[in-house]
Amino acid sequence: MSAILDVQNLSISFGGLHAVDDFHITIEKGQLYGLIGPNGAGKTTVFNLLTGVYKPDEGIIRLDGQDITGRSTIEVNMAGVARTFQNIRLFKNLSVLDNVKVGLHNHFRYSTLEGMLRLPRYHKVEKEMNERAMELLKVFDLDGQADFLASNLPYGKQRELEIARALATQPKLLLLDEPAAGMNPNETQDLMKTIRFVRDNFDVSILLIEHDMKLVSGICEKLTVLNFGRVLAQGDTSEVLNNPEVITAYLGE
């Protein structure tokens, strides 16, 4: 296996505070990887560095061998990184179908003039986008709600729609930010199946931040634990979760 993500010595400070300090991680192609740690440990900051929201003070980020350090969010997305958010960020007043189509625009294009004048290429591309979006919605059993407003979906389905939209960008690496947040146990079980299915059928590696230890232990093959912006432990999931330092810092036992 070769690394889809290789991060070395990643650091960033805000007002003299080291939010992330010497962070390192290697994720192999096809891996399902977890990033855990107490609140304020720096997990979301790491996601923001990986997706170009923040520019690191030090360090290097390689995606599939390509240096993407310091690139813009759009450039990082086009290189193959997509993410979801802890607080769902759908276009609530757009349809379910149109939310997915937003993610397709990097790969299906027509000019402004073609769109304004509804030229043949516009209709051809729109047809292709609709077909691809419906294929993605079928994966999540959302094709029957394609015309619904995104805001009218149940919470768990909104989470799945956000994942479908991220997949529309054809990522190599999918970052999931607390995907189980706000879910009941049944929804979490469904989510675990969905995440496994996505990894197995979309040729994508997955890195997720999560506080639900049942989900983490159930699907993550490897873990990195952050504490105060630094890597506390790294390795196989069961080994890391049984690490005394991790139990003290994170599980509070």
Rank of each mutant, 00 (worst) to 15 (best):
S205V: 02
G30L: 13
K29H: 15
L50R: 08
D190R: 11
G70A: 14
A41H: 01
V125L: 14
S151T: 00
V96M: 00
R165A: 11
L174Q: 05
A3T: 10
V125N: 12
E75K: 11
D98C: 01
L241K: 07
D6T: 02
T112N: 07
A150C: 03
D22Y: 01
L63R: 05
V100G: 04
N48I: 09
L142C: 04
V246Q: 12
L207S: 10
T194G: 08
N242G: 12
A82G: 03
T224W: 11
A133W: 02
I36E: 10
H107T: 10
E126K: 13
D177I: 03
S238R: 15
S205D: 01
F202V: 15
I36P: 06
T26P: 03
I74H: 15
I206D: 06
S217Y: 06
L17V: 15
E75H: 06
E126F: 09
E253P: 02
P56K: 05
D200H: 10
E187V: 01
K193Q: 15
L208P: 07
F108I: 08
L153C: 08
V139C: 13
F228S: 07
E128S: 04
S13H: 13
G80D: 08
H18A: 14
A3V: 08
P56T: 12
M78I: 12
D98P: 01
T169H: 11
P179M: 15
F140W: 04
K138A: 15
N87P: 06
I88M: 04
H18Y: 02
T44D: 06
V100Y: 00
L207A: 12
N152F: 09
I209A: 08
T237M: 02
N87F: 06
I247Y: 11
L137S: 05
L153M: 12
G16H: 01
P244G: 12
A180N: 11
V139A: 13
G59M: 04
S72T: 12
R159D: 13
I74Q: 15
D22N: 12
R132L: 10
R118Q: 11
D236W: 06
L149H: 06
F148I: 00
K124D: 12
S72R: 10
S95L: 04
A164K: 01
A150T: 02
I247K: 05
D177C: 05
I247N: 06
F197A: 08
D6H: 05
E58C: 12
T45P: 04
K157R: 14
T248N: 14
S205H: 00
Q158K: 05
D190Y: 06
L149G: 04
